[in-house]
Structure formats: C-alpha cells, structure tokens
Nucleic acid binder design. Sequence first.
RNA 1: GCCCCCAUAGCUCAGGGGAUAGAGCAUCGGUUUCCUAAACCGUGUGCGCAGGUUCGAAUCCUGCUGGGGGCACCA
Length: 555
Amino acid sequence: MTPEELASAIQGQVAAAVQAGVLPQSCMATQVSVERPKNREHGDWATNIAMVLAKSAAKPPREVAQDLTTRLLTIPEITKAEIAGPGFINITLDSAATGLIAISIIQSGSNYGKSNQLNGETINVEFISANPTGPLHLGHTRWAAVGDAMARVLAAAGGKVSREFYINDRGVQMQKFAASIHAAATGLPVPEDGYLGEYITDLANQIKAKAPNFESLTPEDQLSICLEQGYALQLAIQQESLIEFGTVFDTWYSEAKMHADNKVVHALEVLEKHGHVDRKDGAIWLRTTDFGDDKDRVLVKSDGEYTYFASDCAYYIDKRERGFDRCFYLLGADHHGYVNRLRAVAACAGDNPDKSIEVLIGQLVKIMRGDQEVKLSKRAGDLILLTDLVAEVGVDAARYSLIRYPVDTPLTLDLDLLVSRTNDNPVYYVQYAHARISALLRTASELGHDWQNGNLEFDPGLLVTESEAILLGKLAGYPRIVGSAAELREPHRVARYLEDLANSYHKFYDACRVLPAATEELTSLNVARLHVCAATRIVISNGLDLLGVSAPQRM
RNA sequence: GCCCCCAUAGCUCAGGGGAUAGAGCAUCGGUUUCCUAAACCGUGUGCGCAGGUUCGAAUCCUGCUGGGGGCACCA
C-alpha cells in the first residue's frame, strides 16, 4: 500500500464519518496528509487529519481521532491505528501490504517516481548563458549541474521541458574579446579592460595556424577573423565541456541571430502595442515602473543602439511566442536585481509574471583551497574551470556535490577536501549501494537462482523485520520526493533522499541475509528479499538519473 | 540609503507548522569462518537575539544583531 493509497483510504473513512453524521459536511474538503513518523515506534505512517478537522468539527482533536481510528481499523491492510499526542493517528500496515510496494516498483521500472503533476506544462529552463568569451568556470558549473537536474526533475513530474543556453554573442564584450585575441596574436599590449589568461593566447595561436596569411592581412581583417574564429572556437569549447559534464542543451540561442532575425524590432512593437513604451531624452524607454520595478529601463539609447535590456525583452517575448507557458531563469545572486525588471517585462508584454516567469537565484559558490579563498575573475585569468573540477574529482562527484545543497545558500567547496577525500563524498555512498545490489543480483543469477519466475512466489508477508519495514517505507516515499522536488524547484531533495535510502539499504543488508548460503536452496524469504533489493536498485538508479549521476554496476 | 540571500553540533550542512531537531566529516572505541568493510554499531551542553501568529514554530510574520551579494542610456 502506497502512502497515496493510504491517504485516499483515510479520505474514504472521513467521508463515512460525514455520512454517519459524526463530522459536518465541511470536513469533506480537507486534504488528507500522510507522513512517515520520525520515530519508528509510532508505526508506519501517521496522519494529522484529526487535528486539522478539529476546528470545523467543533470537537477536540482526540475525540475526532477516536472515531476515525475505529473506522480505520475496518480497512483490512491496517493492523493498528492508535491515537497519540495531541491527536495524531499512528497507523501500522499489515507487512504484506507494506511489502507489495516492491512488486509495484519492479513493474514500473524506470517510470517509478514519474508523475503527471505538472500536467504537460511547457517549460523553458534557461541556465548558464555565459558570454562566449572564455571558458566556463565554477560559478557556471553550479548551474550546469543544478539547472540540468532541475530540468530532469521537472520532466519527471510531467513537464515538457526544454533546456536553453542564451549566447551573449553581441556587444562590447565580444569586441573586447576579439581585441584581446588580436593583441595576443600580434604581440600588441592587452587592451584596457581586455581579457587575460592563457586561453586567449591559445585561441590566437589556433587562429593563426588556421590562417597562414594572417600576418599579411590588414589589422581590420585580422580583428574580424579574431572575432569570428575566436567566437566559434570558444563556443565549441563551452559546448564540449558541457557535453562531457552530461548537460545537454536543446537550444543554443544566439543573441546576434535574434537581432539579425528582427526579433528585437518585433518585440518593441509588441511592447509598444501594450502601451508601456515612452520616448524621452532621445531614448526609448520601457515603463517598467508600471509593474513594480524601481526605475524605468532604456530599450534604445539616444545614439540609436539597442541596450542589453532590449535583448532581454525580445528574448522573453520570443520564448513565449515559441509556446512556452513558463520561463525559468536560473541566475547568480549577482543578478538578483534583474528579477523585478524581468517580471515587469512580462507584465509589459501583457502576461501574468506569476505564471510565465520564474527566477531562481543561486548564491555564489565560494571556493577554498585549504584556508585560502580562491577569487574568481575571468578578466584576470584566475579561474577554476568546469573542466578543472571534473578533472580533479570526476563528473559524478562534481555534479553531485553541487546539486546536493539548496541553491539559495552559498556553497563552499574546499578543493583540497574534495580532491583528497573523494571517498567521503556522499555520492560514493549512494553509488556503492547501487553497486552492492548489482553485485548481489549478479551473484544470484550466476548461482542459477531464478527468483523472478521460479517456483517460489513473492510473499511480501515475510518481510517483517525492522530494517525491511524501514527500507520499504523509504521506497514507497520516492514518488512524493520527486513531486516535492519539482514543485519546490529543489532538486537537492532527491540527493538527500538517496543518501537516506542508501543508508536504509546498507542497514538492511547488514541485518538481513539476502542470498542462501552456498550449499542451501533458495527459500521464499530469499525471494522476498531479492525483490526488495531489485526495487531498491531501481529507485537508486532512477534517482541518480534525475541528478545526471551514473549508477555503476561495480565499484 | 534601498533590495535579495543567509545564521542549526568543533567543521560542512539537512530539516515544506507537528511528537525526543538530524546526517556527513572530525574524535575515541567496537563489528567480517557468511551475499562488495566505499559498509554497519556505539560516542554530542547546538536552532544568533526579542516579540508576535496557534492546540503546536528551527520552520510563518515584525524588529534587532551579525555575515555575503546587488543597486548604470555596462555587458
């Protein structure tokens, strides 16, 4: 029996109580919530329904609980229902009812945990969106991991998700980038505010190697080759490192192409049509203060140039016209000032920002090397790159350690720690549980035990020990973890859950012998426990998949 | 000045209004003739301060203190 089934069974008993006149009609509307009690002695599940209903029933919670308890005991799967504390009802299920979850997980396989909670909503998840003027650093890496996990979680909850990377390939930064490469290629001094770092020299060398006549070109032609080639090379480097990292975008969206396609002009027309555009001081403004921004924003400067903000507007409007119900922006804390203006843009375009825009602010990643904080500065070339992190700790550990914390808390990674003690990383703990089960199932098969289709049937009633009951309860809770991770936009919940699940599995493994000893025959108890193991492996594998972390067969 | 985020064990952090607030690391000790010991078991004076909301607050609200970040016709 899953918690959802239990909740609806309780709902049914509430209805019966209303029918019997014990509870007023108003109690029907109340949502029943079922939770796992922290303390195992309180049973398998607990509900606070009596306390919630107490007010509308105009009775003390314990009295409501008393009546419901009697009714709940008529449900065959419930062996015990007790009132506790202020009015909790603690419920113990028949061990067979608890154990059946294993079968249901095995049948669902990779679909276990998926739902249609988001009801096919089309969601655009935009993240990283780094300038193509340098490699991706650790700040981007947090989003590369979390943004992708977010997309996976939303998809598992029934969203139609598209991952998108916005390329800021237009504007002053690109010019500086080209000038910096050009300087490196020709031995000129680095321009003011230019980019530093070895990668600039590398790019310059690659460009010169591809264009043997480079030296003989005019400086203007050289510069334009540097821009074009430097951009292409650097973008390819970003794309490759993300693929290696396991983050694959559906769309790489070029700002320059958006301009070339006249999308910005179109966006201005849309905004104008909705009546929030002003002209003053020779510039064109969007009256974002109509919708809570603290000042109006310039779309077109008095010199006729579009602002970056104009691109933001056009990009948003284009996303909506491409059919996305909801646009996620995953931004660093240094961009939190954008939230109000993005929402105002949506409102100026005639949308309800509460529906169409969702901005998640990720606090910055602080990096320690021992006691020393490593300062990041792309211009100065002092970087911790995505590729560096992966080289040091591997994709799985890197992704996992970035995902397992909520994004709204600053994250401190100690590189020395991550490097020197990789075995202590929780990801290994979870992966080990998966590898351990894989080994066990492998052994079962090598010994010729046919536990799935053999003579012995799965008997869930044999799973009676404490560690089995705890493990089964955790397995039953997985779908709601995925659901809450999606609803709250907090993929880290999946990671925390997996650690908890792995812990329950290791304890189970320690307490319960799964396979028969070498000389003995397979028993029904072995079969039942093999089902539990198989179900656990499925859940770990499904959960790790949501994080983009591998589930190894061997370690 | 205005805005956002944060404050929980020695350290890094979990904890969607519920019962005795939890992990990992670190410390010290224990467990394997038996399926993977990357495991398991034991070892703890902790929710920054003050109010409020209610049957009940680490959780929600207000104020304060302390830390991080942000405020351009920049990108």
